Computed example of a mutant assay.
Amino acid sequence: MANVQYYDVILKPVVTEKTMELMGDKKYTFLVHPEATKSQIKEAVEKMFDGTKVAKVNTMNCEGKKKRVRGTFKYGKTAATKKAIVQLTEDSKDIEIFQGL
């Protein structure tokens, strides 16, 4: 992944009931660039959110779903995505974008 800046790594946060429960344990879920590595994700979170220290990063590649094209018997796929669950250290500050949720 050449010439990708830290602000290109994290695309958007994932907000679901399950991820909201994980926030109590200081685990935050983000959609990330499909070619991003764990070290790049760690660096991006620490630079984008002041006062955060990342303990570990878990990633998962989500395959695109099979979709039928309307009116025909042809099939296509939605885009593949990559999710990252970021565990912060105990002395780290919380991420502010999730405070009001």
Rank of each mutant, 00 (worst) to 15 (best):
V14H: 00
E35I: 07
E35R: 10
G100S: 13
V57L: 03
I97K: 09
K56A: 12
E43A: 12
D91E: 14
D91V: 06
A2S: 12
A84G: 03
G76N: 12
E96V: 08
Q99S: 15
D25C: 07
D25E: 14
A2Y: 13
V9H: 00
I95Y: 03
Q40A: 07
E21F: 09
M60P: 05
N61P: 12
Q99C: 13
L31S: 06
D91K: 08
V69P: 14
F73H: 14
V15G: 05
Q5S: 10
P34V: 06
V14S: 01
T52A: 01
K83Q: 10
V69L: 15
I41D: 00
Y6H: 11
S92Y: 06
L22Y: 01
V32T: 04
A55C: 13
N3H: 10
K82R: 07
Q40Y: 01
K56E: 10
E43G: 06
N58V: 01
K26C: 01
I97P: 14
K66I: 06
V57C: 07
F49D: 02
T52S: 05
T52D: 02
V57P: 11
I97T: 09
Q40W: 02
A55Y: 08
E21I: 11
A79V: 11
G71A: 08
E96I: 12
D50Y: 07
M48T: 09
K47W: 02
K42L: 09
F73I: 15
N3C: 06
G51Q: 07
A55V: 06
T78I: 07
Q40C: 07
